[in-house]
């Protein structure tokens, strides 16, 4: 018998702590598949941010380094500069990457650090119990925007993939989703491409994955999938916003 789908090799333990229907598990799988297909098990080095994804090392059999909240890309810079042969990636949520870690994220991108970012955007702080995130949509009710996000008070949701695409140091900036089979297969390709580009020393590669958080959205898994499609994608369009074909020429 030939496997149509089997557990990725590098995924050592698939008993995720995530809530039912949470897309973190799906994203973990996609990262694991990319690592398997490029044979990166020994070279991959995960820099893990703070959030529900913080236990990635429990699931993926790759060297892992935990960074303080928001500092993932500073930590990853340190690793990559002294161990350029390692394939360094960060796994960060919206609060981690786009709020407390905005400075580190933008500057690592601007320096064109040759690392890969897996950015899980679910428009909310999941691990801490559903507070407003920098990506929370206008009108969205969270535990710290009980009357809905309002731009005069809370600002607008930040589109990270578009924003980082404006920086010269960025080699790849894309947004994907895993809410339908078609989108999932696209996401798979882009995540793999990001790692390939790092292997080719192309520079900073950034993949934003729109994800659901049924628990903190107070929704069933099904409704959450619909929300990704109907509310998130219209504001956070899918696509590749920048893809450099050559290594940094400057």
């Amino acid at each position: 018998m030939k496997a149509v789908y089997k557990k990725p090799e590098v995924l050592k333990n698939p008993c995720f702590h995530f809530c039912p229907g949470c897309h973190h598990g799906t994203v973990h799988k996609l990262v694991a598949e990319a690592i398997d297909s490029l044979n990166l098990k020994d070279s991959a080095l995960a820099v893990i941010g703070v959030g529900c994804g913080v236990f990635l090392y429990d699931y993926l059999d790759v060297d892992s380094l935990e960074a303080p909240h928001g500092r993932g890309l500073a930590v990853a810079t340190g690793v990559k500069r002294v161990r350029p042969e390692r394939i360094v990636f960060t796994y960060q949520g919206d609060g981690d990457l786009a709020s407390i870690g905005m400075a580190e994220s933008v500057h690592a991108a601007n320096r064109g650090e040759n690392v890969t970012v897996i950015f899980v955007n679910n428009t909310i702080y999941g691990m801490t119990g559903g507070q407003m995130a920098p990506t929370t949509l206008l009108g969205q009710v969270t535990t710290t925007s009980p009357y809905g996000r309002e731009f005069h008070r809370d600002g607008y949701p930040i589109r990270m993939a578009e924003m980082l695409a404006t920086l010269e140091g960025v080699a790849l900036s894309a947004r994907v989703s895993v809410c339908t089979p078609k989108y999932l297969f696209d996401a798979k390709k882009i995540i793999k491409k990001a790692f390939e580009m790092q292997l080719d020393n192309m520079g900073f590669t950034f993949v934003e994955v729109l994800s659901s958080c049924p628990t903190n959205w107070n929704m069933s898994s099904m409704d959450a999938l619909n929300r990704v499609k109907e509310e998130m994608i219209p504001f956070f369009p899918l696509g590749v916003f920048k893809e450099r074909k050559m290594p940094d020429v400057l």
Binding site: M1, K2, A3, V4, Y5, C15, F18, G25, K29, F185
Partner: peptide, 21 residues
């Protein structure tokens, strides 16, 4: 039909799919 879509979509790797050669 063992198409594998269920397994691809499952966030928890609950399903594995096999087909003969």
């Amino acid at each position: 039909t063992a198409c594998g879509i269920c397994a691809e979509m499952c966030p928890d790797v609950v399903i594995e799919v096999w087909r003969d050669n």
